[in-house]
Amino acid sequence: MAETLDIEKVRKVAVLARLKLSDAEIGDYATKLGNILKYVDTLNEVDTEGVVPMVHAVELSNVFRADEVQPSLPRAAALQNAPKTDGTFFLVPQILEDK
């Protein structure tokens, strides 16, 4: 059954996710995410007392490598896909207000 997520909650999550959504999208996600969250609630049936969370399939820890200088991307290559650049830096809108 359709379980609708609170519209305000959806808006809050969209802000956290840095997604500008239309009202239609917000409404659609409220229903569809609500359905999915209701489904995943079935996990509450499983007794996980004392079970260690499994973050990775291959549980490696502390993979070290030698601290050696490796060649990195040349500046031009690093900037080649930039939406806005002056050839030296990535350009972004002004962050600090003018005094």
Binding site: V40, L43, N44, V46, T48, V51, V52, P53, M54, V55
Partner: peptide, 10 residues
């Protein structure tokens, strides 16, 4: 919770 059930599946 999902990570814990993941271990049980493994």
């Amino acid at each position: 919770k999902a990570l814990k059930v993941r271990r049980l599946i493994r």
